[in-house]
Amino acid sequence: MHLSNKQKQYLKGLAHNLKPVVQLGGNGLTEGVVAEIENALSHHELIKVKVPSDDREEKALIMDAIVGETKSTKVQTIGHVLVIYKASEDAKISLPKK
């Protein structure tokens, strides 16, 4: 799903007050973590995921893998936090028109 800049700005505003729902541990990105992220996405549509990693390239690869595995859309990254969006069947968030 491609989001326009207007839609991304709207989602960033909604995500501002959210706390990270999922935090990766020492084992990194496992199947269980991906399942938990997908579960949170289906329930909330817009979530934050904390990816604690000192290596920038590794962190970027993990974030790209999360977006790819969950088929979600990356809204924003701030430091170690990734904001992703995936519309569910019963849409809770109504996006502005493109």
Rank of each mutant, 00 (worst) to 15 (best):
N17H: 09
T30W: 06
V75D: 15
S88C: 15
V22W: 04
P96T: 13
Q23K: 14
I84M: 02
V75S: 05
S88W: 10
K97W: 07
K50P: 00
M63W: 04
G68W: 14
T73E: 14
S53K: 01
V83P: 00
N27Q: 07
V22L: 05
D64W: 00
K97N: 00
E36F: 14
D64K: 07
V49S: 10
L18W: 05
K50R: 12
S42H: 14
T73W: 10
E89H: 11
K50D: 08
I93E: 06
L82I: 07
K97R: 06
K86N: 11
A91P: 07
T77H: 13
I78G: 12
V83F: 08
G32I: 06
V83D: 01
L24C: 06
V33D: 12
I37N: 00
D55H: 15
N17R: 09
V34D: 05
V67P: 13
H44R: 15
I84F: 04
S94I: 01
L82S: 04
I62N: 00
K50I: 03
H80I: 01
H44Y: 13
P96A: 15
G25L: 03
G79E: 05
T70C: 07
K86I: 01
D64F: 02
L61K: 02
A35S: 02
G32C: 13
N27D: 00
K59G: 09
I93A: 09
G32Y: 13
L24Q: 12
V34A: 10
E36Q: 12
V67F: 06
L29A: 04
S88P: 05
I84W: 04
A35Q: 13
S42M: 10
V21W: 11
S53D: 00
V21K: 05
S94H: 08
A65Y: 04
S42A: 10
N17L: 08
H44C: 04
I93V: 08
K50Y: 00
Y85M: 10
E38L: 03
E69P: 07
K92C: 00
K48Y: 03
M63H: 06
E36T: 10
V33F: 01
S72M: 02
N39L: 08
V67E: 15
E57D: 02
G32A: 03
V83C: 12
N17K: 10
L82Y: 03
K19E: 05
P96Q: 15
A35T: 04
G26D: 15
I47Q: 07
I37S: 03
A35M: 01
E31D: 11
G32R: 12
I37Y: 04
V22M: 07
M63F: 09
N17D: 08
S42I: 00
S53P: 01
P20W: 01
I62G: 02
L95M: 05
K71A: 10
S88K: 05
V34Q: 00
N17I: 11
G32H: 14
K48F: 12
